[in-house]
Structures are given as structure tokens and as C-alpha cells.
Computed example of a mutant assay.
Amino acid sequence: MTEVRIVTDCAASAESAFRYVNDYRNLSRFLYGIQSFTPVGAQTEGVGATFDGHMKLGPASLRSRVEVNRWEPDAAIGITSIKGFDVASTFLFHPKGAERCTIDAIVDYRVPGGLAGRALGKTIEPFVKIAVKHTTDNLITQITEFHAGSAPDAREA
């Protein structure tokens, strides 16, 4: 597996960051290359929630069905693929006070073996690096804006 890890501070509480990432509808706003991410069934959060995802990285079109396998309110969300492109990811939210947190995002992916798998790996590698940079920038900006809009002072205004 290839691991991509993002560890960054954010001007939002761990609770706000968790709420933003936990809403599957936000994924297409911050995850670079995502084409679609739709629930399979009525459950949209918590362990057992399942989603079909489609991502485009350069010329490669990747599809997976993923299932939430870790869900700890305000602390962690983990998913793993159960069909399609082999991916596992975890978002960890570490509080650093009421207005700051550290987000630790880990994405592991595996390309199939053989010539086709090696070719796919070489094709998507540069795009994965671009995706990580854009995803990090988008995620931090959007969580900060979400937190500012959901802060008690903002709701009272």
C-alpha cells in the first residue's frame, strides 16, 4: 500500500472539524478529483454507513464502494473499500483548545499487481501529490469557514 498523510493545524474546534468532514455532502467540496460520493442505503454516518465513490486522478477513473469502519464522535472517522479501487482512509481530530485542532488524515491505497497495476500506479502518482496539496488547502479553508459560521457568536448575530 502507498500511504499519503496530511497533518495540519486548523482554526476550528475538533468538534467543528469532525462535523464538517462527517457530512458526506461536503466531501465533493474539499476532496480533489472526486466526481461523486453517494450513500448506499439510508445510513449516512457511523460504523456501517456505505458509499459509492468515483474519483478522477489525471487520466485514471477510479471507483470504490467504501464502508465506515471507525466512527468516534469529534475524534475519528475511518473508511475502507469493500469493492473496487483498494483504499482506506482515516481522519483524526485532535483538540488544541476551543478554537484550534490538528487534523491528521491518512490515506492508504493499493494498485492491482502486474503490468496494469504498475502502469496505473505510475499514472496516478503525480496526481496524488497534487490532490493531497489541493485537498489540504480546501479542507482547512472550508472547516475554518464552517466553524466561523457555526460559532455561537455567529449564530447570535
Score class of each variant (00 low, 15 high):
residue 116 A to G: 05
residue 154 A to L: 06
residue 51 F to P: 03
residue 95 P to M: 02
residue 86 D to P: 08
residue 109 Y to D: 00
residue 145 E to P: 14
residue 76 A to G: 02
residue 99 E to Q: 13
residue 12 A to K: 03
residue 67 E to N: 02
residue 59 P to H: 01
residue 150 S to N: 13
residue 29 R to Q: 15
residue 130 I to E: 11
residue 5 R to I: 05
residue 132 V to Q: 14
residue 44 T to H: 12
residue 51 F to G: 01
residue 139 L to N: 09
residue 82 I to P: 03
residue 103 I to V: 05
residue 45 E to S: 15
residue 90 T to M: 14
residue 32 Y to R: 12
residue 79 I to D: 09
residue 101 C to F: 05
residue 38 T to K: 15
residue 27 L to W: 13
residue 51 F to T: 03
residue 72 E to A: 01
residue 81 S to L: 06
residue 49 A to N: 06
residue 18 F to K: 02
residue 102 T to D: 06
residue 116 A to P: 07
residue 24 Y to V: 09
residue 155 R to Y: 12
residue 86 D to I: 15
residue 78 G to Q: 10
residue 150 S to C: 13
residue 5 R to Q: 04
residue 59 P to I: 05
residue 106 I to V: 12
residue 71 W to F: 05
residue 4 V to A: 11
residue 114 G to K: 03
residue 18 F to R: 02
residue 38 T to E: 15
residue 38 T to S: 14
residue 66 V to R: 01
residue 120 L to H: 00
residue 84 G to H: 05
residue 97 G to E: 04
residue 57 L to D: 01
residue 43 Q to W: 08
residue 38 T to Q: 15
residue 68 V to Y: 06
residue 105 A to L: 11
residue 59 P to G: 07
residue 51 F to M: 04
residue 95 P to F: 01
residue 115 L to V: 08
residue 143 I to M: 02
residue 16 S to V: 07
residue 87 V to K: 11
residue 20 Y to C: 01
residue 53 G to S: 07
residue 65 R to D: 00
residue 19 R to I: 04
residue 47 V to T: 10
residue 139 L to C: 08
residue 41 G to N: 05
residue 67 E to F: 01
residue 118 R to W: 11
residue 134 H to G: 11
residue 142 Q to P: 10
residue 138 N to E: 10
residue 111 V to R: 01
residue 110 R to T: 10
residue 66 V to M: 02
